[in-house]
Amino acid sequence: MIYYLCFVLFLIGLYGVTCKKNVVKIILGLWIMEYSVNLFLILLGYRKNGIAPILKKGDDIVEFAQKAVDPLPQAMVLTSIVIGLGVLALMVTVAIRLYQRYGTFDITEMKKLKG
């Protein structure tokens, strides 16, 4: 059930990317898609009544391994969030450059290919 809600969030982002004319709205649609994908990966690694994969003093390791949630998707998503920030900065830079050249954010107005 939660997976479907997460996928609906992804589809809203897809709608923003394909149907919007404003460059900033397209960037926001990509950003929403990234949220949903990160959330989906973390949801896949959740164990029922799981605890965070951080050892406390005096914990039994075998018992801890029976209870902790999956640490591998968490590490990968941590990487993915930071990469998303870099990609966002690059996209915003391109949007600012397009605004300087054409004076608008509307993608249907950007017809001149000549630099």
Binding site: I27, Y46, A68, I81
Partner: peptide
Amino acid sequence: LLGAPDIAITQMVVEVLSLIILIRAT
């Protein structure tokens, strides 16, 4: 809630930074 405090902290920080970057665009 899903037992990932590291990612929650990173998400908060990235959220503030992305707000600054996006406001710079508009």
